[in-house]
Nucleic acid binder design. Structure first.
Lengths: 256, 256
DNA sequence: CGTTCCCTTGAGTAGTTTCAATACTTGTGG
DNA sequence: CCACAAGTATTGAAACTACTCAAGGGAACG
């Protein structure tokens, strides 16, 4: 993992833990070369706004990004992205997004033009398929969010969010024993779970009282991960991690 | 529209109202040729089950299909598809789906092998991009569902579902004045909106009392469409209809 | 003409929102 | 170093929304 970041400092986390092994070194180099310019953000800033025409896409290198939609004075979070995510690759085909991309906390991103992606589409169908795959991962996560919003109440919803982010950070080597560190605040969690910040606070208190998870200003400590996952009915298959759905055998070209 | 179905009986509705105009006649013919075998279903049947390895994709020709996820004895609906939708095109890149595809009512579908799609990926980058686009439409719809689950209560949720399905049926020429006809039952609507069937029934009663929409065994009558859309805070831009986000000018190759 | 599926209604309980008020934390300037 | 401000987190009480359990009504199909 450290090797990947040495070799590919800007895109070394892309699809790590998922289908990165299906990429040849040449393809990894191609992806790395796609990202020309980088930018760093402090505190909440809008990377890309809903409806704005756009001809480049963004690789998240460090930090967190939220997908948000505003409606009637309020903001709703419809997705969260972690390092290694090609956060608006779908803008290549959509041209204008239906949602906003906003950073929270410090973040570092890289940009690539759609012209360069277009070249990849023409020259390397295998890599094109992997790029497509990465956008479909987001869709799979969206579906799980829908399901969990339908199924769970606030305490389990936020517990599920914790489990998902932890697993995704694990994929890219950013996990930590006993929990995770995020730039999230309770208001963000509320907007992800479709509740008010006040109710989210009570939900978090409940998780704390029951010894499931302790959220304190972005730092999430979990005494017993398995227990939290069971509580949240978290099943990671929808994240298409290596081996989970037999993905590795399907698209893999080379073994590490 | 009728012309499209005469020329392309199995895929004439694909991307109709969205980017179908961006396809050349040759590309439309290519898509039509992708679908070799067709099948018809009566009443609820599973087209594709979560986790099952699969090497073909499904075009919905007639009828409705639900995307469902089962968890703890219950079923949750995370998406609905209408004629013209390439319902599991994403299985081409994912290989196994994270959800089930089930028909409701009568449905007719066409199948295409992933080998054939692979050829398109290599031979026609422009068409590949349109196929990609169509899977991203689903993701955009997922995001709107998340947002509406977070934002709205049961009566407005189901009103929003009505508005969306109506708009999507309009795209493919299946709208009707004063409402729509679907094979949906109240239980399905409940599973889409994350409520119980009993509560959905009360929500529907409320819409009926307020003269917003009258749901009766799949038939939905709406006295005033604009009023319903306003009530549900329905904004169709996320469906990427022609012209709405200036799509037509962006990817279009020919004008009709 | 009865079974089955679908829809409807009532009453009590649990979960969530709103409004209002109070603390804690962090960073900034005096 | 302290005081203050801004952002973040916490608590209480009343009103609303949704769920569960239980029972009954209606339409379609054989």
């Amino acid at each position: 993992m450290a090797d990947e970041l040495d070799l590919y400092p800007k895109t070394g986390r892309f699809l790590e833990g998922r289908l990165r092994d299906a990429m040849s070194e040449e393809e990894k180099a191609t992806v790395e070369s796609l990202v020309e310019e980088t930018a760093e953000f402090e505190s909440p800033e809008v990377i890309l706004e809903r409806g704005v025409l756009c001809n480049r896409s963004t690789m998240l290198i460090e930090g967190f990004v939220l997908r948000t939609i505003n409606s009637g004075e309020k903001r709703y979070v419809v997705g969260v992205q972690v390092p290694g995510d090609f956060v608006d690759l779908h803008a290549f085909a959509l041209k204008r997004l239906d949602h906003n991309l906003v950073t929270i906390g410090k973040a570092k991103v890289g940009f690539t033009t759609h012209d360069r992606i277009k070249d990849v589409m023409s020259d390397n169908p295998h890599l094109a398929r992997l790029l497509w795959f990465s956008t479909l991962l987001d869709a799979a996560i969206h579906r799980e969010w829908i399901m969990k919003l339908e199924q769970l109440r606030a305490p389990k919803r936020v517990a599920h969010v914790f489990c998902e982010i932890w697993q995704r950070l694990d994929f890219v080597g950013l996990g930590r024993d006993g929990g995770i560190d995020t730039p999230l605040i309770q208001q963000d969690l509320a907007e992800m779970c479709g509740t008010t910040a006040i109710h989210m606070n009570r939900a978090l208190s409940q998780l704390r009282e029951e010894g499931l998870a302790d959220f304190r200003r972005g730092r999430i400590d979990v005494p017993d991960r398995k227990r939290l996952e069971k509580y949240a009915t978290f099943d990671s298959t929808y994240l298409y991690g290596e081996g989970v759905l037999g993905m590795r055998g399907e698209l893999s070209l080379s073994t590490p």
